[in-house]
Write a protein that binds this DNA or RNA. Structure first.
Lengths: 159, 159
DNA sequence: CCGCGACAGTTGAAGCGACAACTTGATTCA
DNA sequence: TGAATCAAGTTGTCGCTTCAACTGTCGCGG
């Protein structure tokens, strides 16, 4: 029970801290940053909306709103998929890539300072296993099933 | 960084799952439930707003809005503090207590199903320690007291 | 006694996310 | 072929959180 109360506090506070840092320093939310980070790591530079929604653990609706805002600011471009008339491809623009380059150092520093650096290497490993276990019970019941699994294999370079 | 990506997914998905369960089964949000839970555990049954904000990791503004909604629904009552004219005491009503009794079983079951039961006892202990460490860097003045700050500026080294 | 700053809490506007309804393109099958 | 069905996204609305500004109170120095 004590563990749960502390964990709830983390769930409540940490997103706000990360959001604040990115918004203050770079004018983007953490989720916007994460969306652009995922896009910046795709080989082709473009990704279909549903796939992007799965990779970012977002509902299609949320992703649509966010990408619309990012497009308005010139960080992302949307274009209808040639092969699939109902699909849409999202692609990071050069401006979006520049925004990422500018925002990444501050964000990674914040993540390290608030999470990674305060944990021992074993605790980081433990956190990965714990997160995995929780995701296993939460993701199937959540809005996005199986989406997080695309991060199972390789160790990504995001954030 | 693989650990971080998984943890971000948990931060993104878990609150939504808990919120959904409580909202669907009991018509309250997770934060509303948490506020009432803290109130229900106070010896006197009442608590100052600032103290309650600290205990629930919320900003004064957020707590004010939430308590106003809870008061409208008859779950909480506010009364000016006799000793301190500028302070306000929040107290759980009998209706609020009944709401808690009705909502608690489903919520604790959800917490167990999605978090506690999928972790080993050692992992629960590890999660408590990890949460504690993160809280230490995220809420420098401590979440149970005032002095809660959202972001205290860049202090780390950029890589 | 009065003014000034800090404290406790509230309020209103703006932004973001959830939910549901909708549009449009693909698929299935008789 | 053509209607029923499903999939991919989008949109509109509503509720919650945040931010800044505000009201009222306490404490203190002059």
């Amino acid at each position: 029970m004590a563990a749960w109360v502390r964990f709830v506090a983390v769930l409540e506070l940490l997103p706000g801290v990360l959001d604040s840092q990115l918004r203050r320093d770079s004018g983007v939310t953490h989720f916007e940053y994460f969306v652009m980070a995922v896009l910046s790591e795709t080989p082709g530079g473009a990704m279909r909306m549903t796939e992007l929604a799965g990779a970012t653990n977002a509902t299609p609706s949320r992703l649509s709103h966010v990408v619309a805002r990012l497009e308005e600011r010139g960080y992302v471009e949307r274009s209808p998929c040639p092969e699939n008339g109902r699909a849409t491809n999202a692609r990071l623009t050069e401006g979006g890539r520049a925004k990422m380059r500018a925002a990444a150092p501050g964000h990674t520093a914040a993540v390290r300072r608030h999470v990674i650096d305060v944990l021992s290497p074993e605790q980081v490993t433990q956190l990965a296993a714990i997160s995995d276990a929780i995701l296993g019970s939460v993701a199937p019941a959540g809005p996005m099933a199986e989406g997080y699994r695309r991060y199972d294999g390789p160790a990504g370079e995001s954030s």
